[in-house]
Design a binder for these strands. Structure first.
Length: 110
DNA sequence: CGTATGACTAGCT
DNA sequence: CAGCTAGCCATAC
């Protein structure tokens, strides 16, 4: 197999792209892993997105807390759990419905 | 290079 | 409405 395709034409890996997009999410808005994956050009790679997020440790530059599940539910967070994630979102003005984000109102519109 | 894993999603029971 | 299964992708070991 040729797993070593080598991304010479694109130094950025899938994760790098994800970070770029995530960093563009405006405050008070959120997006889903699936949507994020689609934006980077890999629809269906929602899992890969999350995998990169936990690998990312730049919450200051990469607001990974603005990325939630497709149903608006908060999933993991490598800096304090979904609890800290929820708090951050609330603090930014994201509308919550019970324990889930209201994607209808706070969903990020690209 | 091959296998295992995960911050997902959609579908079915 | 809640829980479980199977499918998908990229990364790490």
């Amino acid at each position: 197999m040729k797993m070593k395709e080598k991304r010479t034409h694109s130094e950025k890996t899938f994760c790098e792209k994800v970070y770029e997009i995530t960093a563009k999410i405006p405050e008070g808005n959120v997006t889903t892993y699936g949507t994020l994956a689609e934006i980077v050009g890999n629809t269906g790679a929602a899992r890969a997105v999350g995998a990169c997020m936990k690998n990312n440790h730049d919450t200051t530059r990469i607001p990974c807390h603005r990325v939630v599940a497709a149903n608006g539910a908060l999933t993991g967070y490598a800096f304090g759990g979904v609890l800290a994630k929820k708090k951050k979102l609330e603090a930014e003005g994201v509308l919550f419905r019970r324990e889930k984000v209201d994607l209808e109102k706070s969903g990020w519109k690209k």
